[in-house]
Amino acid sequence: MVTTPITAASPTGSSYTGPIIDTDVHETISSWKHLAPYLGEPWRGLLERGAWTKPGAPFAYWASHGVNRADSFPDSGAPAGSNYELFKAQVLDLYPIKYAILTGQFMPGIMEMQFEFASALASAYNDWLFEHWLQKDERILTSIHVAPQDPQAAVREIERLGDHPRVVQIILPIAQLAYGDPFYHPIFEAAQRHNLVIGLHHSSFVKGAMGRGRYYIEWHVNVPQGAMSLLTSLVCNGVFDKYPNLKFNIIESGWSWLPHLLWRFDQNYRSLQQEIPWVKRLPSEHILERVKFSTQPTEDFDAQTWLRLIELLGTDRLFVFATDYPHWDFDAPNEAIPRGLPAALKSRIFYENARELYGLEQARSV
Rank of each mutant, 00 (worst) to 15 (best):
P259V: 08
M228R: 14
L258V: 03
I250P: 05
A191V: 01
E285W: 04
L258A: 03
I250T: 03
L288Y: 07
A209Y: 11
N249F: 02
R290T: 03
E289S: 15
L231D: 07
H260F: 15
D300P: 12
M210P: 00
V197C: 08
R281I: 07
V239T: 12
F205E: 12
M210L: 12
W219H: 14
E285P: 01
W263K: 14
N222V: 08
S284G: 08
H201F: 03
L234F: 02
K207S: 12
Y269V: 09
D181I: 01
V279L: 08
L234S: 02
T295G: 04
L258I: 09
I187G: 01
Q274R: 14
K207E: 15
G180T: 12
G213W: 04
L196W: 07
V206H: 02
W255E: 01
Y184V: 02
I187T: 03
H185D: 05
G238V: 08
N268I: 11
G238T: 10
F265K: 09
H202V: 14
Q267F: 13
D302N: 15
R214T: 12
L258H: 03
S294M: 00
E189T: 07
Q225C: 13
R214I: 06
P244G: 04
R212G: 14
H202M: 13
E289C: 09
P297W: 02
W278F: 13
Q225H: 15
A209R: 14
L288N: 06
Q192N: 07
V279K: 02
S256H: 11
P297F: 07
V223I: 15
P277L: 05
Q274C: 08
L261I: 08
L272K: 09
E218W: 04
V206D: 05
L261T: 08
A227M: 08
H220M: 01
P297A: 08
V206L: 05
M228P: 04
P277E: 06
L272H: 11
F265R: 08
V279P: 06
I276D: 07
L288R: 13
W263H: 14
E252K: 04
A178N: 14
Q296I: 00
W278H: 15
E285A: 11
E299I: 09
H194K: 15
F188T: 02
Y216I: 09
Q225A: 13
I187D: 00
A303T: 06
A303D: 11
E218P: 05
A227N: 06
L272N: 14
K280H: 13
P186C: 07
A227Q: 03
V221L: 11
L200W: 02
N237V: 02
Q225S: 12
N249P: 01
D181T: 10
I276H: 11
G254F: 00
P283I: 03
L272A: 13
A178F: 05
L282K: 10
I287W: 05
P186M: 06
W255S: 03
S229F: 02
V206G: 00
E218K: 09
S253Q: 10
S284E: 11
I217C: 12
V221D: 06
S294R: 00
T298D: 04
T295A: 07
G208K: 10
F205Y: 14
R264C: 11
S203C: 05
L258Q: 07
R264W: 08
P244H: 05
E218N: 14
